[in-house]
Amino acid sequence: MDMHPRASEEPQSRLDKVIPNEAELTAGVRIEPGKSYGFFTDTTLCIGCKACEVACKEWNNLPADNVGITGHSYDNTGALSANSWRHVNFIEQAGACGVRENAQSPFQSGWLMMSDVCKHCHNAPCLEACPTGALFRTEFDTVVVQQDICNGCGYCVPACPFGVVDLSELDGKAHKCTLCYDRLKGGLEPACAKSCPTDSIQFGELEELQERAEKRVAQLHELGAGNAYLYGAPGSPGATGDLGHLNAFFLLTERPETYNLPTAPTRAANRVPSSLGAGLTAVAGLALAAFAIFSGRD
């Protein structure tokens, strides 16, 4: 990415104020309400440094959790949770009989690393399931939980097809990535994307990110990584089951399940008519059976 012309206006290394529209300098995008923003995570660039996890915890004042070592590689966070809103998956790829191949194809073939996050779904099932309106769509087209409204009912937890949103046992409320809502309001790039040293996480306007991602897939195909594809971009795997598209989408090189992502996620609301029909049929059947039994008595 070329240096933004505004960069020459801010040569000082010590700042006494926030740079206005700082995201223009760091991500090449001006953040304005009414537009759609998201993340494009290119997993072929991730080196597993966890700078994104740390930046997220630092900015959002989230505590370190799962203190200790899981015993599963370097992945000590384990999973997304109420206190971990970014989680870097470490997936070791073994060859036949668990032995690594001597020859490897290009781009992260021995270890797959992928920084997972809330997908800020276009038709977000968590938001549809929330009975209090605590989950809402912001002016930046992202999905956020309002802590003062959440009553901790937990309906959003099973509604999310990606297992992202989680209830905290301590405050009883739902928590997940806010796509740094407060930073966006201040014109700042989200903390994870800003800290990523390899630009594996890219923040920007959704349409521009989707175009950039298509170009990156074409480039990887040219370079010999024919297995690269997008997950969550319109019309791609992940953007299934009426979810529309995912505002946080990924470039992957293995099947989605390898990264703990569902192959074809769906909206929980899609299953309401069939479940309701089955429930009503069962009630009607039981009522008929009861009528048949009791009407035969004297």
Binding site: N61, L62, P63
Partner: peptide, 8 residues
């Protein structure tokens, strides 16, 4: 520092 229900 304050973030949601977390504070320093």
């Amino acid at each position: 520092i304050v973030q949601e229900g977390r504070f320093q």
